[in-house]
Design a protein around this nucleic acid. Structure first.
Lengths: 215, 215
DNA sequence: GGTAAGTATGTTAGTGCTTACTAACTTTAA
DNA sequence: TTAAAGTTAGTAAGCACTAACATACTTACC
């Protein structure tokens, strides 16, 4: 009789190792992204995943290894996405479509996954050993690709003769600063859609870079 | 005899309260900038200042109050500097000098004080209550000022009719991304001087924004 | 197809260490 | 002499991590 009245203690959901592992990674990624590595406790992660702390350490040898697994996952996710973006952009025929697609895809990606930029910044600031790889996977390929494109268009005579590294940084800077303003600084006073913002950045950039004599 | 041979235990330097307070702020600012709030211990701060931990808590009621004092100091420092930059820029007669001076001064400021950007980012990521004020003091005035300038030049007919908020973000983004690449991501492959970088950004931006029909 | 053995997945209750912070005392300088 | 500026030696709470045990699922065998 009594047991029927007592609040049913919901049994802990028993998961297969791989499923649990993935769940822990997902929960921990959220927490690390919002509080950083040293600001997140293994107890919080365990609570978030609905298991005891000991389970965390059955799946990951240490808190640091768990963090590394997350960065590793994000690196893969990021560089895949990046590759797809670059291919998509390269398939475009004109400058406007090339840069427009790049800017738009970056804005969309970070709109959908707000943890990415936070993890990237936290890991760089906190000096994690994987942070360089993280940054490289996100930025280096894109940077090199853009530079190459700019070089090509410069030798075509379409762009002014400008330092490709500086131009690439200028373009990426516009976009990433917009991402950070929204993701990190909650500064949302540019009310346009990602498509519109991308278009306007591209317009400024292309006019700025194209070969046309302006006083 | 013995005491003459023993290593002279350098007496702890006795400072006036205000001097010590400032020294602690300076030491702690470095540490918070490099490891974040939760990554820095009061023990480390005490060691850095060459005093016992108890001294920290004589000057600051809590670790949090110490952090707040640092952010407060940086906010003042930042907005003073910002004001000076804006005045300097406003005194310039032409667009190139206006934007050039802004970009150059920002690059120079962050070259001299690498802790500023790190503290700004850490406080925003870790969600400190003063972080909004910190961001505002750095960005809002500048943003509004730039927008106003762009609006003016647009109604002069010198600039294309473009959203001032987007244009301001584009310009600031170029500069701040360059700052972050150096300060946070150790990506130093743009080898130019701050003056040169500023000039090139301004060239891209002004060409991008000026009223000239380009296909 | 039922069941016992074995294994995978979970919990509890700790460990020693570090943390922010404090009380009680000592030294220096005006 | 007295107040300011320092120290030492703690405190309770929180940290990452672990050993020892409990429970559920899978498989092997009759």
């Amino acid at each position: 009789m009594e047991s029927a009245v007592l609040p049913q203690k919901s049994q802990p959901t028993r998961m297969r190792a791989e499923t649990r592992r993935n769940q822990i990674v997902a929960v921990a990624a959220e927490l690390f992204a919002s509080r950083g590595f040293s600001g997140t406790t293994t107890k919080e992660i365990a609570e978030g995943a609905g298991v005891s702390e000991a389970i965390i350490f059955r799946h990951f040898a240490s808190k640091d290894k768990l963090y590394a697994a997350i960065l590793d996952y994000k690196v893969k996710q990021g560089s895949e996405r990046m590759k797809a973006q670059l291919e998509e952009a390269a398939s475009r025929k004109d400058d406007r479509a090339f840069f427009g697609s790049l800017a738009f895809e970056m804005l969309e990606f970070h709109s959908k996954d707000r943890t990415f930029m936070r993890l990237l910044l936290f890991s760089a600031l906190e000096g994690h050993e994987l942070s360089d790889i993280f940054f490289d996977s996100t930025a280096r390929d894109m940077k090199n690709h853009i530079r190459k494109y700019i070089k090509q268009r410069t030798s075509d005579g379409a762009f002014r003769s400008i330092d490709p590294a500086v131009a690439a940084r200028a373009f990426v800077g516009m976009v990433l600063h917009q991402v950070q303003a929204r993701t990190i600084f909650k500064d949302d006073d540019v009310k346009l859609s990602n498509r519109q913002i991308a278009d306007r950045f591209v317009e400024i950039f292309l006019n700025g870079v194209r070969d046309s004599e302006v006083g």
